[in-house]
């Protein structure tokens, strides 16, 4: 069960927030931009109560002397994108720790506003899309 949405003061503005991207499920053809790109669905929070968007907190891995790029590509190899915490907070999103016992101690969540934590607004979604940069690139796929 997910934790109550909150904003973690221990996550600094410049810290990188990583979102894993499944190349088989999250990539779509875009004829408008003549490319293959990441679907906006990849950046959606879970729809249930307290649902957020799962992420990995890079700073926690570094503090544990864990290589982040190796960690987020195992056990299943997937691509990933990253945002700064500040870029998410600038549009009202909140970021918190949500470690998964025995699975992922560096797991976190990104939540929407207090009114609708499990739904990102159009502006918030656009901010996520525009601030995303590749962390582990998927070749032949655009961020757009």
């Amino acid at each position: 069960m997910s934790v109550e949405p909150y904003d973690e003061v221990g996550i600094a503005g410049p810290d990188l927030i990583i979102r894993r991207i499944d190349p088989e499920q999250h990539v779509v053809d875009d004829d408008n931009r003549n490319c293959r790109r990441i679907s906006t669905k990849a950046y959606s929070p879970s729809s249930g109560e307290n649902g957020g968007m799962s992420v990995d907190i890079e700073q926690l891995m570094i503090a544990d002397d864990v290589e982040p790029k190796a960690y987020v590509t195992s056990p299943k190899y997937v691509g990933s994108v990253a945002f700064t915490a500040q870029s998410l907070r600038d549009v009202g999103l909140r970021i918190g720790y949500d470690p998964i016992p025995n699975v992922n101690p560096y797991h976190g969540e990104v939540w929407g506003t207090e009114v609708k934590p499990s739904r990102f607004t159009g502006a918030q979604r656009n901010a996520i899309l525009s601030s995303a940069s590749w962390y582990v690139q998927i070749l032949g796929v655009e961020l757009v």
Binding site: Q25, H26, V28, D29, D30, D31, N32, R33, S39, T40, K41, A42, S44, S46, S47, G48, G51, S54
Partner: peptide
């Protein structure tokens, strides 16, 4: 359309063509 799964069991239908993005 393209069909994209959500992590929570949901599903998104998408078209990106003719200068429109429909999701």
């Amino acid at each position: 359309p393209a069909l994209v799964p959500g992590a929570d069991g949901t599903l998104q239908i998408e078209w990106h063509r003719n200068q429109y993005d429909i999701e």
